[in-house]
Amino acid sequence: MAYIANARMYSVDAAAALAWRELFSWLSRASGVDLDIIDHAFPLPLSELWSRADLACVFMCGLPYSRAARPPRPVAAPVPAQAPIPGLPVYATYLVVPAVTKFLTLEDTFGGRLGYTVDGSHSGYNALRHHLLPYYRARRARLYRESIGPLYTPRRVIDALLSGDIDVGPLDSYALDLMLHHQPDLAPKLRIVAATDPAPIPFLVAAPDCAEDVVSRLQTTLATFASAPACAGLRDRLCLEAFTPVVAEDYHLMTRWDAEARIAGYPEPG
């Protein structure tokens, strides 16, 4: 049986997408699992991808995973080379503004236009709201005159920033690492004004009914990524140190943050 692999969440540009395809090709050869590397690009819904019965190695955000009635099987989590806690499979959300603006702090952006990705995203919505919650509690009022979204992807958040459609927006820190690595011309155009607390990063999943030996072979092979000579170039191109086992309980953090904001009467960022 052929299974599917997909890295849409971190295929932030053509160069990154090619590197992910090469990683999955290596993984298929080294593990002996027949992986069909598919495209499932925006605007196709991620929910359709995550519901497929032939999933074997597909990135999934921790928030929908933690909410799933029947969650998929964890395969492995990536460890970014620039993870906010070195050596751990975590990421953060950067609050970013255009470099040409006068905004130097997050507070400077209050009263402006806030962008967000989609309400099912941790980095682009849930973590953003969690970071803004103390300011909302202090003011007991909206922080921004307008919330603009869904923008869906990190690239579309950057496009909205650079076009002037929003004043500040959230970016998955690992996605930004990849974009800046492959598109260094973006660096002088953006300014990070704040970062959220770290959270467990999106990870590779298989379908709930995926065969145990398939998941095991993928996990065993991905555990060698950090030292495999064949992956030396991929480690650089994907800004990754390693893949590590998933601790599913860690992702409960995301539903706790969601519940905390809703109890406080702050159901959406803005």
Rank of each mutant, 00 (worst) to 15 (best):
S173K: 00
D165Y: 05
A206W: 10
R191L: 06
T153Q: 08
R155A: 13
P170D: 08
E212R: 12
V205K: 07
P198D: 02
Y174S: 00
L180W: 03
P229T: 01
D159H: 09
P229I: 04
L204F: 08
D177E: 14
C210D: 09
L171E: 02
L180N: 09
P202Q: 13
G164R: 12
G164V: 08
L143M: 10
A207Y: 09
A187V: 11
T153D: 09
P202A: 12
R191F: 02
Y174E: 00
P150I: 08
A211L: 07
A175L: 01
D209P: 10
P188L: 14
D185T: 07
A175Q: 05
A228L: 12
T220M: 15
L151F: 02
A199K: 09
P188M: 12
Q183W: 01
P154E: 11
S147C: 14
P150F: 15
T153Y: 01
R145W: 09
R156Y: 03
T224N: 12
L143H: 06
S227N: 11
D172R: 02
D197P: 01
F225P: 08
S147W: 05
S173C: 00
A223L: 15
T153M: 05
L171A: 10
A160Y: 02
E146D: 12
A195V: 03
L218Y: 07
G149W: 04
L222D: 04
D209N: 15
P229K: 10
R145E: 13
A207C: 07
